[in-house]
Amino acid sequence: MRAVRNLIGALALGAVASLGAVLPSPARAAGEAIAIPDANFGFAGFFGTFDRGAAQRGLQVYKEVCSACHGMYHLSYRNLLEIGLSEDQVRALAGTFTVMDGPNDTGEMFERPARLSDRFRRPFANELAARAANNGAYPPDLSVMAKARPNGANYLHALLTGYVDPPAGFTVADGMYYNAYYPGHQIAMPPILNPDQVTYADGTAATVDQMARDVATFLAWAAEPETEQRRAMGVKMILFLIVLGGLTYAVKRKVWADVKH
């Protein structure tokens, strides 16, 4: 079957071409080669979904710990409905934050409780204020952090659990902390997660590893909230294309049946 062999050839060629294309992918080239341990997240893999409980616990860690310094500007409070919180819960949570609004009819700015439509409140007015409060370091926004680092979620989990004693002979600069997974190993963020730092409502023991996993799950969802919808659509799309491809190939065979070759 020449046609089949040609088709397989074309397929193999496509596969080789794309493989060849991705092998030197810059993502693998940049950065230092620090091996990041795989945290075996349930949302990794092609059909994974986010553990809603973990994402909600991660939100709690973010809110009670991280948000003191790190913003998540690209998220609105309404987005939290997607990780399984009810509208009342989200409304109540937003209501605990005060945002600036205005100007009103008399031209004055005024403060009001946050609504579902408001963006997550920023911890600092601007970058200079953030640096002034953090010993010169600028805590980056976390909205897309999980896709702004190679191996994002695993890296975040490793980083948060990676505060260890520096190896002998390693000098840690003043105001910096040693981290096994941070590029260059010196990070301005202190080891902020301590056992029982937060009290989980669902009774999960708040170990450092558990909190790191939960907040990494939350950040992975926040960076790509469309993930589950995207994968579900992808399955349907590819199944559809396979069926359509079979039909198209049958039509092609039929059309070419009278051609000797």
Binding site: L241, L244, G245, T248, Y249, V251, K252, V255, W256
Partner: peptide, 9 residues
């Protein structure tokens, strides 16, 4: 017909 097959792949 032949291009359509390639297109779907």
């Amino acid at each position: 017909a032949k291009d359509s097959v390639g297109l779907i792949v």
